[in-house]
Design a binder for these strands. Structure first.
Lengths: 110, 110
DNA sequence: ATTATTACATAAGATTCTTATGTATTCAGT
DNA sequence: ACTGAATACATAAGAATCTTATGTAATAAT
């Protein structure tokens, strides 16, 4: 995203949606996946991602499972039941937000 | 918008786009127009709007014209040349952002 | 008279990011 | 054997953008 304030506020939604589709993922994997999907145009910084994951866990939306792979630790996150509900809610909010932006930025002149 | 973090970062773009379409507007009018367009679903608070207008003016994107109407002062804002360019740029950024969100939230499963 | 609306403004605090920094392991190239 | 890139986590300081609260002041509506 480089210099994009628009991104602000959407990170949680993105993370939760990825976990919804992929069952479980670890932090580094999430950053790779976002870059892959957006062809490198959107980059999630670690300074934003890790605090967000911790916060979602603290809110009871995510659970964690530690794994060692190649002598490196990975923290796999997955949605709790509460997290699944919140994900649906946030996806609807995002949809509504984009509709409103469409109304504002592409006005239908009658 | 009530409780919507997604809104964060998009206010400048909305304001500039409205000024692009309406030539000149005053603060209170901008709040009314946004509510009108979004059927009351998006509400711009004054605490967000006025500092934003001042900032855009300080950056040379807006100019001001004072008017007295019904013994009440109005500050009409309008785009400078620099503001017109920045508006196009921000509208493109918003478009790109929404495309990326679409990629992330509505993945095309092959 | 009192409340709502119009019209501006700012300050404190919350939230979410960026940038910088730190630790530690593995892998690829020289 | 060494160096840098990649993998994988973490946190802290500061920036940017908002919310909430508050203030001023005039007109319109009840």
């Amino acid at each position: 995203m480089q210099n994009n304030q628009l991104f602000k506020g959407s990170l949680s939604t993105i993370v939760l949606k990825l976990l919804k589709d992929n069952k479980k993922m670890y932090g580094y994997q999430i950053t790779r996946e976002v870059e892959k999907i957006t062809a490198g145009e959107m980059v999630i910084t670690e300074g934003a991602l890790y605090p967000t994951l911790h916060k979602l866990e603290a809110r009871g939306l995510l659970s964690v499972e530690m794994k060692m792979v190649n002598n490196r630790r990975r923290k796999y996150y997955f949605l709790t039941e509460k997290g699944k509900k919140e994900t649906m809610s946030l996806l609807n909010e995002m949809k509504t937000f984009i509709q409103h932006m469409d109304l504002l930025l592409n006005p239908k002149l009658i």
